[in-house]
Write a protein that binds this DNA or RNA. Structure first.
Length: 591
DNA sequence: GCCGTTTTCGGCCCGACTGTTTTCAGTCG
């Protein structure tokens, strides 16, 4: 932030712009701005983060205000940022509130009103100073702050400093399912579901939301508080419990009556922006929606309940079909639902095989045969073995001799399957390095043995987006590779994507009919949802693969499918949902 | 801040829990 947008500097991405808008919103909160004005900034940030077109391009065409939620004022600020790398208004606010005060907003239970007050009235401008003041009992001099507030604050500062970060979906989902099973086993519980971002299958999640229906909500809350997984109860009433897991992750349980289940599930699934749009739409129709149901609006009196038992009913009340949770990000799903153009999303069962799998020939843990058998057990029709090419020494890249031995093994396995009448095929692929000079690491003398080639970047990362783009586009145009593995190189919670001009990559992929991978490994999920959607919109084919290095990894396929669903992807867009014959003839086109 | 087949002004989603302010503001989701 702050220095982008200057000629010759890395291109400003939508994510950069979204970050700036969020930072503006943080500062405006401290400044006690009107809540609706604030919402405009937050909403715009979320829209921009998921927007399929680069705002930098739109700005060049003077079309920023075509983005929903961006009017004259925000367009000017975004334009200023794109042109100069700065926003005067943002700098003004920054001068007013030190960075340390903005950071206080991250402390649980300590919001903008509190942060602004301790700064203005006690001149506290960092979390360290805040902690000192609380210890010294100086905060209670402020009206509304008591000893208990100080005590809680100190505890919450500890929590923030331990940074209970977002977690990978694959780490949190099993925990959520475990808690769900325990809730379902309670005699007072009628129905229980996971809600929140976990249900929307976001790639990383913060809190965990659980929803239960019961006639005896207080008893359910009581029982939940006793779960051994909870190390601390943050807040607890008769219908709601907030607690913390040992990992530091917060869990929120809500209990509602059965007739409200659908309304509550819809509400607690979010996203917040999706719900705002849903409720606004309800208001337009003379209805009001809360977590207990859809009601006819009748002034101040509680109107008649018209829906709420299940989600279908809730959406039907506002004349929409049910919308899959993965799409509920306010990225056009409501408009698509209204127009009857929601995608028929890909499902895990559509996948017929995994096309990126490693064995002991490079850095995998098992043999070709063991991986094949594990894939068969999953009900697949084929598996593609793709060990590393020679230049990736660190990962045991194969020599040409090893490629031949592996090939013999695969031929033998296939012969055996055929002899037994088993409809299962092992494909021989290669994960070839796209080298820093743009060439692709394929041993020429064995090239003809491969059914297909995956091109991936593993070394020579550079922050120079132009050079990275040239490399990847060059690989696509070489005619040698069938798809690009983990195209942006990001590692969730660890490493950002190397800068890549995705538009150029998509254009090349579309015109050369090269697919892009959605790598299903839980810390990659690369392409991400938004990029996958952009690819699909450009007519680029996709493939979802686990990049397994162990039989246990084959089960990661579900996470790739979730990401694809969040990217509005249908089965036909994904080459490994095709029949083996169709897939093979697509591979052969290139040979 | 944005937005407009009821509006270019006046709307903008809604409720639970906490601490302390005896009627509510702040925070969160």
């Amino acid at each position: 932030m702050g220095t982008r947008g200057v000629i010759g500097m890395p291109r400003v991405t939508n994510a950069d712009i979204a970050d700036v808008l969020d930072r503006l919103a943080d500062l405006l909160e401290l400044d006690n701005a009107d809540q609706f004005r604030l919402r405009s900034y937050r909403r715009a940030a979320e829209t921009v983060r998921g927007y399929p077109e680069e705002l930098a391009n739109l700005h060049a065409q003077r079309k920023l205000t075509t983005v929903p939620g961006i009017g004259k004022s925000l367009a000017e600020k975004i334009a200023e940022y794109l042109d100069t790398g700065q926003i005067g208004y943002l700098e003004e606010l920054r001068a007013k509130y030190p960075e340390g005060v903005v950071e206080m907003l991250n402390i649980p239970g300590f919001g903008p009103r509190s942060a602004a007050r301790v700064f203005q009235e006690l001149h506290i401008s960092s979390i360290a100073e805040l902690e000192q003041a609380a210890r010294a009992g100086r905060l209670r001099t402020l009206p509304g702050f008591g000893a208990k507030t100080e005590e809680r604050l100190l505890h919450n500062i500890e929590l923030y400093l331990q940074a209970s970060e977002r977690g990978l979906l694959a780490d949190v989902l099993p925990v959520a399912k475990g808690l769900l099973a325990k809730l379902r086993a309670l005699p007072e519980v009628a129905q229980a579901e996971i809600a929140g971002s976990v249900r929307r299958r976001r790639e990383t999640v913060g809190d965990l939301d659980l929803l239960v229906t019961s006639e005896q909500p207080a008893r359910v809350c009581e029982a939940f508080r006793g779960f051994e997984e909870l190390v601390e109860v943050i807040a607890a009433g008769d219908t709601k419990v907030s607690a913390r897991l040992e990992s530091g992750r917060q869990v929120d349980l809500r209990v509602v009556p059965q007739e409200s289940f659908g309304a509550a599930l819809q509400y607690f699934t979010g996203s917040q922006q999706h719900n705002i749009s849903v409720r606004y739409r309800a208001n337009q129709k003379g209805l009001t929606i809360n977590e207990y149901g859809v009601f006819v609006e009748e002034g101040d009196a509680k109107g008649d309940l018209v829906a709420g038992r299940d989600e279908e009913e809730v959406y039907a009340a506002i004349d929409l079909p049910w919308i899959p949770p993965e799409l509920r990000e306010n990225r056009g799903e409501i408009e698509a639902a209204e127009a009857g153009t929601l995608p028929a999303l890909i499902e895990p069962g559509d996948i017929k095989g995994d096309l990126q799998v490693h064995t002991r020939y490079s850095d995998g843990h098992q043999s070709v045969r063991e991986m094949a058998e594990a894939a068969r057990a999953l009900g697949y029709r084929f598996i593609g073995i793709t060990d590393h090419s020679p230049s990736l020494y660190v990962a045991g890249g194969m020599t040409s001799d090893e490629v031949r031995w592996q090939h013999d093994e695969i031929v033998e396995a296939n012969a055996e399957y055929e002899g037994q009448g088993v409809k299962f095929t092992v494909l021989h692929g290669l994960e070839a390095d796209i080298l820093p000079d743009g060439t692709i690491d394929i041993p020429e003398e064995v090239y003809q043995l491969f059914d297909y080639i995956v091109g991936s970047v593993h070394q020579g990362f550079t922050p120079d987006a132009d050079r990275m783009t040239t490399r990847v586009v060059g690989a696509i145009e070489s005619g040698l590779i069938d798809f690009v593995g983990h195209p942006t190189g990001r590692v969730l919670l660890k490493r950002d994507a190397y800068g890549l001009h995705l538009d150029a990559v998509l254009e090349a992929a579309a015109s050369h009919d090269v697919a892009l991978e959605i790598n299903a490994f839980p810390n990659r999920l690369d392409l991400c949802d938004v990029d996958a959607r952009r690819a699909r919109d450009r007519g680029v084919r996709l493939t979802i693969n686990t990049d397994s290095h162990d039989v246990a990894h084959l089960g990661f396929m579900q996470y790739g499918v979730y990401t694809a669903r969040r990217g509005w992807i249908e089965a036909a867009d994904v080459v490994n949902t095709w029949n083996l014959e169709d897939l093979r003839s697509w591979f052969r086109k290139r040979r």
